[in-house]
């Protein structure tokens, strides 16, 4: 996925622990990754030390970075900067076929036509030298 660097990360100071850090580091290298259990093949996100299905230590797998909107909202009021200056913006849950659900913003979209089931693709926004935050935008061909 594309990594966009606007040089002005101001959303939230990020201090992820060791497992979470791998996810944001992968995003900075253009990869959207989730966990898959080496024993029972359960997929899960967010990442954890153990597979919540069988307790084994999961592996990481890369996904296609494409999915569909499971549900969404258009945020009109927000009490904290910078989000209070970004309204209205789309906040959605995105399901990917590999078996995970993400929260994310859908950008480059008409907020009047955004809908459940819409196809979207991931890209990421650089946080710092080592991490980036996955975001989503419509797949143009759909």
């Amino acid at each position: 996925m594309e990594v966009v660097d606007d040089g002005m990360w101001n959303r939230v100071p990020m201090a992820p622990g060791p497992i979470d850090r791998k996810y944001f580091e992968a995003a900075s290298q253009g990869k959207l990754i989730i966990q898959k259990c080496r024993r029972c093949e359960n997929t899960q996100f967010p990442p954890k030390m153990l597979c919540v299905s069988c307790g084994e230590e999961p592996d990481w797998v890369e996904t296609s970075g494409e999915g569909k909107i499971y549900t969404f909202t258009v945020v009109r009021r927000h009490g904290v900067e910078p989000f209070s200056t970004l309204v209205p913006f789309v906040l959605a849950m995105i399901d990917i076929p590999e078996g995970a659900r993400f929260m994310g913003n859908i950008t480059e979209i008409d907020i009047e036509t955004v809908h459940v089931g819409q196809k979207v693709e991931a890209y990421s926004l650089r946080i710092d030298e080592t991490m980036a935050l996955p975001l989503w935008r419509p797949i143009q061909s759909s």
Binding site: R11, V12, P16, F45, H78
Partner: peptide
């Protein structure tokens, strides 16, 4: 840090 990493940066 923690699970809100996957929510709060999105507003």
């Amino acid at each position: 840090s923690g699970p809100l990493l996957y929510e709060q940066p999105y507003g």
